Simulated assay, not measured.
Amino acid sequence: MAENTSKNAIVTGASSGIGAATVRQLRSDGWNVIAVARREDRLAHLAQDTGATPFAADITKDDDVARLRAFATDTFAPSGGVDTVINIAGGARGVDTVANAQEEDWEWMYRVNVLGTMKVLKAFLPALREHGYGTVLNLTSTAGHTTYEGGGGYSAAKFGQHALTGALRLEEAENNIRVIEVAPGMVATEEFTLNRLGGNQEAADKVYQGVEKPLTAEDVAGVVGYAVGLPHHINLDQIVLRPVAQAAAHKLIRR
């Protein structure tokens, strides 16, 4: 088979943060991109700025995912079909201990991070196999590799997504689908921590207080763009990236 020559990507979670930055990175690298998120207004602005194709959908809903699959199939048919699926959509809610766990928060995190990723992949794996040079990139987290107090729910969800990614790599290698995991540590974005802490801006600001140069959404997007832009036979199985100030999950330098 000839090397992959199409550059057609689907990016979920594209309305803000790492997802939006990834769309911008890929577009600057010459990719055709369908930007997927729930918030149509934000997608419209992103599309205007980048030339990406917006598609409003909730990846946890089967009907929305089915609509996305049909739309992407038609959109990318003239340029070689879907070859890359990048799952950025996810998130965290709460910092409660296991003893004080809010079940609705845990259920939301599992639904978005694990089941949403699964639904998107299940929808697009046939197209990736047919293409012959498919790529899947899942954005997980260092929280999916190491636990910490108050992070049980988020870690459980990201451990699940991490496990899903590893199994997928084994299952789809025979179909020439490369499966990449990008696991960031501390990333300062406008919404992640704010949403996790229930909209408390003061508490969100304290998370990053004194930390010299936490990662940015653009830092992570640059790594994502690099990983999916490599020749297809090179698979960066797992990429862990942290700011220098965060030597480990339990060691963070504040100045």
Rank of each mutant, 00 (worst) to 15 (best):
Q246M: 09
D41I: 03
Y226R: 01
V33G: 03
A47K: 11
T53D: 15
D58R: 14
D237Q: 01
Q161D: 11
L115H: 01
A57W: 10
G94I: 09
T84H: 04
T84C: 05
Y133N: 13
M1K: 12
Q201I: 07
G81Y: 11
A47V: 06
A183F: 00
A227S: 07
E212F: 10
I177Y: 15
A2T: 14
G134R: 02
L236D: 08
N235M: 02
V228S: 02
K206I: 01
V120Q: 06
I18N: 01
Y133I: 08
G225E: 02
A89D: 07
A183N: 06
A188W: 15
G225N: 08
W31P: 00
A156Q: 08
W108H: 15
V224P: 00
R129K: 15
A52F: 06
T50S: 03
A248V: 09
L194Y: 14
A249F: 00
Y208R: 05
T97H: 11
K61I: 01
K213R: 13
V65R: 09
V33M: 03
G81V: 07
A89S: 11
I180C: 10
N235E: 05
R169T: 02
H131K: 12
I86T: 10
M186Y: 11
V187K: 01
M186I: 13
L125A: 10
T75N: 14
E191Y: 00
G13E: 09
N176Q: 05
T189I: 01
L215V: 06
R196K: 08
Q209C: 05
V33L: 01
L170I: 03
R67K: 14
G90H: 13
R27M: 13
A70E: 09
Y226G: 02
R242A: 00
E104I: 14
V95M: 14
P184T: 01
G116I: 03
F192H: 14
V240C: 12
G90D: 10
L139F: 11
S15V: 00
P54R: 09
A245C: 07
E191K: 04
A47Q: 08
D41T: 07
Y226E: 00
A52S: 10
T216S: 13
R93Q: 14
A9I: 11
G116W: 01
F124I: 04
V136T: 15
A52E: 05
P78K: 07
L164G: 06
I177E: 15
D205Y: 01
A9V: 10
N100P: 00
R178T: 04
T5R: 12
K122I: 00
H131Q: 12
I18T: 06
L26C: 05
N175K: 15
A127D: 10
G166C: 01
E149L: 01
N176W: 00
E212M: 07
T117D: 13
S6H: 14
S155V: 03
V207K: 11
A44P: 07
S79N: 08
N8L: 02
H162Q: 15
K119W: 02
E212A: 09
A217L: 00
E149C: 00
G153T: 10
W31D: 00
G152R: 02
E174T: 08
V36F: 12
D62V: 05
Y208V: 03
T84K: 03
E171H: 06
L128R: 06
N32H: 11
H232A: 03
A14S: 11
T216A: 07
G222K: 05
I253R: 15
L139T: 08
D63A: 12
I253M: 14
W108R: 13
